[in-house]
């Protein structure tokens, strides 16, 4: 048996604003590696340490319940000892399961904890989560809307619009927490770049969660990223030497849980309800982004 001292350790940061599917991903990942239901996926080689959090979220996932948001008081450092299918070498994978609100606070408050700073320094890669339906864009007051209104509106509306005045005192002030999703995510990556003192590459797997909802509208997850979060997409392309990246569309639940889940329940292997799209990955292999980050240096 391989001694503990000889096992390689690989740390991957999990980053994402609130409700982007980070914990649900971990629950499904834990099921896939433990059940070995997906060929060629990473698999668990040995149970080790405290697994209470992972078992709890996996239970919710297997019962077709919302896995639930991680709150700041229950941040968890998740450890899994895994190997590739057919491989003999184990890798200890460490993920911090952090509350999405704490990432938003990093952008707003411009500081993070010493513990997280240490994780950033030691990280070997990043899993960056975005929700396919919850990205806030830089929605502008567009003149084309004015023109559409002028075609559709009645004379009274148009006269009202033309004379409308913005009274400064009654208008809301800029609040940094309302900044577009892509701006906040770029800044989080810039913070990481700022705090890391080495020049090594840091691969980033972008996970577009709830992929089942939009999968018919986009040919690929890359296309979704370039259309919905173009600033982040450009940032990753322009910094490819430092942050090589790959984009995955993943539905860890397989379908919305607020509808009829009978189809999900019919799967003999629950791993089969997971949807994964991305370059070079198999349909249900939720470990694909983790593997790619591990293999990219």
């Amino acid at each position: 048996m391989t001694s503990r001292a000889s096992i390689a350790t690989h740390k991957q940061l999990i980053i994402g604003l609130p409700e982007t599917g980070k914990t649900t991903f971990l629950a499904a990942l834990w099921h896939v590696v433990a059940s070995r239901e997906v060929s060629n996926s990473l698999r668990l080689t040995r149970l080790d340490g405290d697994r209470k959090h992972l078992n709890k979220i996996r239970k919710a996932w297997l019962e077709f319940r919302e896995v639930g948001r991680t709150v700041q008081t229950t941040e968890q450092l998740v450890t899994m000892r895994l190997s590739v299918a057919g491989g003999t070498e184990s890798v200890e994978l460490i993920f911090p399961d952090m509350d999405g609100e704490s990432f938003r606070q990093q952008w707003v408050d411009r500081k993070w904890t010493k513990e997280y700073d240490d994780l950033v320094s030691e990280a070997d890669g990043i899993l960056l989560f975005v929700h396919s339906m919850k990205a806030v864009g830089p929605d502008r007051i567009d003149p084309s809307i004015d023109e559409a209104v002028s075609v559709l509106g009645d004379e009274e509306d148009l006269a009202e619009d033309a004379t409308a005045i913005d009274y400064e005192a009654s208008l809301p002030q800029w609040n940094s927490k309302d900044a577009p999703t892509q701006v906040q995510l770029v800044e989080l990556l810039q913070f990481i770049e700022h705090r890391r003192h080495d020049v090594s590459v840091l691969p980033i797997a972008v996970v577009v969660s709830a992929w089942d909802i939009i999968m018919t509208r986009y040919d690929s997850a890359e296309e979704w990223l370039s259309k919905r979060l173009p600033l982040l997409d450009q940032y990753l392309k322009a910094n490819i030497e430092r942050f090589p990246s790959r984009v995955y569309g993943i539905s860890a639940q397989g379908a919305p849980l607020d509808g009829d889940v009978a189809d999900l329940q019919r799967h003999e292997h629950q791993s089969d309800r997971i949807i994964v799209v991305g370059e070079g990955c198999e349909p249900h292999d939720i470990t694909a982004p983790v593997k790619w980050v591990m293999e990219t240096e």
């Binding site: 577009p180 701006v183 600033l231 322009a238």
Partner: peptide, 14 residues
């Protein structure tokens, strides 16, 4: 740049 590349250039940071 929030809409995409511009003038032949990509946003690379700020």
């Amino acid at each position: 740049f929030q809409e995409g590349s511009f003038g032949g250039f990509l946003f690379a940071g700020c």
